[in-house]
């Protein structure tokens, strides 16, 4: 059996004139997390829907455990689990009824359906709420149940579409813990996210996509190394000093400085490390700029994303002129976020 569990080659998909995916290649190894990172509208959900056999690609091929998601869709479905940001559970059913329904539809035997539902409820700390209708659940509980539903049949491949979007920080960390356990048990996971810290923490490999294209790929460290070294970051005390600070240190950097006006923050790629930091400190002092903070640090994935795309990963389509390759175009699920 191949050790590449998820394989996508040259997948293209357009909705009308909107190109959602323009030739995507990626691969995920067994018992590893492949992080698919990109802003809203990058094409993440479209790719997820193709892998989950919900949508047909226009071109290219996608395979799960060697099985083609189009030709062998019937064989793919029993070995995948799908969960995501929409928490696709039935509100009027109880948690247990939801899990048992999914178990039956995976065609597990009746005793196994019961046993697995109990196991999943326990694993996700939902035993106490098992017989309550889902509409009484909190957001975090729903998401746990949704993830649990995708695990009822213990599928070796899990597709998680932004599993922590909209969750509070505590629930996010909890969800990360569950995902890490699953991987330790041998599950292969494709995880889409727009959160860099999430990809940084969970993903063994990261594929960055933007406008339906893969723009970078590698481990978190490899992506950070693409920036070629450290980053000088500073925060000015008064916002008016930001331009002055930029002028003072711009030429010291080894790349384009990034300005975050909202927080009075400036980041500068600095291959020179401490030497660049010292030089920056001297110049800022000479220019009489009061700083809140000045530091040298390893680049974050956010810096990488900024350098690769010219916009922040969290930028929620805020540039008014960007075309919107809507992830949703094939799904009919709109306005739920």
């Amino acid at each position: 059996m191949a050790d590449t569990m998820i394989e996508v080659a040259g997948v293209k998909k357009a909705f009308g004139t909107t190109k959602a995916l323009c030739g995507v290649d990626l691969a995920a190894d067994r018992a590893k997390v492949l992080g698919l990172l990109g802003p809203n509208g990058a094409g993440k959900t479209t790719l997820v829907r193709i892998l989950a056999t919900l949508l047909l690609p226009d071109e290219g091929s996608a395979r799960i455990a060697g099985l083609d998601v189009v030709r062998d869709a019937d064989a793919v479905r029993p070995i995948i689990g799908l969960a995501g940001q929409y928490a696709a559970v039935d509100e009027t059913l109880t948690g247990r009824e939801n899990l048992e329904l999914v178990g039956r539809l995976y065609h597990l035997g009746r005793p196994e359906v019961r046993r697995r539902a109990d196991e999943v409820l326990e694993r996700f700390s939902l035993t106490g709420a098992a017989d309550r209708q889902v509409k009484t659940y909190s957001g975090g509980m729903r998401r746990r149940l949704d993830l649990g539903a995708s695990l009822v049949a213990n599928p070796p491949v899990l597709i998680l579409d932004e599993p922590t979007t909209g969750l509070d920080p505590r629930s996010r960390v909890e969800m990360w813990g569950f995902i890490e356990t699953l991987v330790a048990d041998g599950t292969t996971i494709l995880l889409t996210t727009q959160y860099l810290d999430e990809a940084d923490r969970l993903a063994h490999r990261i594929v960055v996509i933007d406008y339906g294209k893969v723009i970078a790929e590698g481990t978190s460290d490899q992506l950070k190394d693409q920036l070629g070294g450290d980053v000088v970051e500073l925060r000015v005390a008064s916002p008016g000093d930001l331009d002055k600070a930029l002028a003072a240190i711009a030429e010291l950097g080894d790349g384009k400085p990034q300005v975050d006006a909202e927080y009075g923050r400036l980041t500068l790629p600095a291959k020179g490390g401490p030497a660049t930091l010292m030089a920056a400190a001297r110049r800022l002092d000479e220019s009489d700029i009061t700083l809140e903070d000045l530091s040298l640090r390893r680049p974050s994935l956010d810096d990488v994303f900024m350098a690769l795309t010219g916009h922040s990963a969290g930028a929620d389509g805020s540039d008014g002129d960007e075309p919107q390759p809507a992830d949703d175009a094939g799904g009919g699920r709109r306005g739920t976020t």
Partner: peptide, 19 residues
């Protein structure tokens, strides 16, 4: 059901397409 996303879950399951 379509809007709630549960149809997506059903369609990703190995169940009969007509069910």
């Amino acid at each position: 059901d379509l809007r709630g996303g549960i149809v997506d879950r059903f369609r990703s399951l190995p169940m009969a397409r007509s069910a």
